[in-house]
């Protein structure tokens, strides 16, 4: 299983995209290899989320982007679980006769969440970056492609604008991550407000 997940993080994103196109678009012809499909006009807003071909066009890019992140988080949860399962409170939970499910999912998994949230937050950021690759592979005229062209053309103002926009997004993501910490870990909660009572 972990060897399978290693394949997941060893395949470069662009290669996954190319392979998916080769299999599902060129060989099987099930899904489109580029573009965004048909769009519907809703007032002044055109969207591809209301058409079948629009959804079909999303499938391959979504898998391309998601596969790497998925395997990465899978490996992270595994290594964190291995760490947590060695702790005293897990041993004590077992000694109290709690069921395997309660120990593994209730007690252990929740304790792996803090690092998992951290990394997932960072991964959200890299999804934005990897969109550059996905947009290139699937020929989507998105902001990632714009950035790529600005790098190739040394268009410093566009590069800077892109980075500022991305940086702002990262700040928002980090804020969300910090808020999630507080939800998950009570130790952080009491540090902020009233100090932990004796």
């Amino acid at each position: 299983m972990m060897t399978v997940s290693l394949i997941g993080i060893s395949l470069p994103t662009f290669l996954i995209g190319i392979l998916l196109i080769l299999v599902f678009a060129v060989m099987l012809g099930w899904l489109p290899s580029f573009g965004r499909g048909d769009v519907v006009k809703l007032g002044g807003w055109s969207t591809g989320f209301l058409t079948v071909s629009g959804w079909k066009a999303v499938i391959l890019p979504a898998i391309t982007l998601g596969l790497f992140q998925m395997t990465l988080i899978m490996r992270l949860v595994r290594s964190e679980m291995l760490e947590v399962l060695r702790t005293d409170y897990i041993k004590f939970a077992r000694a109290r006769g709690l069921s395997n499910r309660a120990v593994n999912f209730g007690h252990a998994l929740k304790n792996t969440m803090v690092p998992v949230i951290t990394i997932t937050g960072l991964q959200l950021g890299s999804i934005i970056a990897f969109a550059i690759i996905t947009e290139t592979v699937f020929s989507w005229p998105g902001v990632g492609l714009l950035f790529l062209q600005s790098v190739q053309a040394v268009d410093i103002p566009v590069m800077a604008a892109y980075l500022v926009a991305i940086g702002f997004l990262f700040v928002l993501i980090n804020l969300a991550v910090d808020i999630l910490y507080f939800v998950v870990d009570p130790r952080l909660r009491s540090m902020g407000g009233k100090a932990g009572a004796k």
């Binding site: 004590f92 000694a95 007690h107 304790n111």
Partner: peptide, 29 residues
């Protein structure tokens, strides 16, 4: 087997470990 032994742990035989600081799960009341 594990599920039989599980019913004995806690119910018939309890355990206390050395370090109280790490014996409790920090995320639960």
């Amino acid at each position: 087997p594990y599920h039989e032994m599980r019913k004995i742990r806690g119910r018939q035989i309890g355990a206390i470990f050395q370090d109280p600081l790490t014996s409790l799960n920090p995320l639960y009341r």
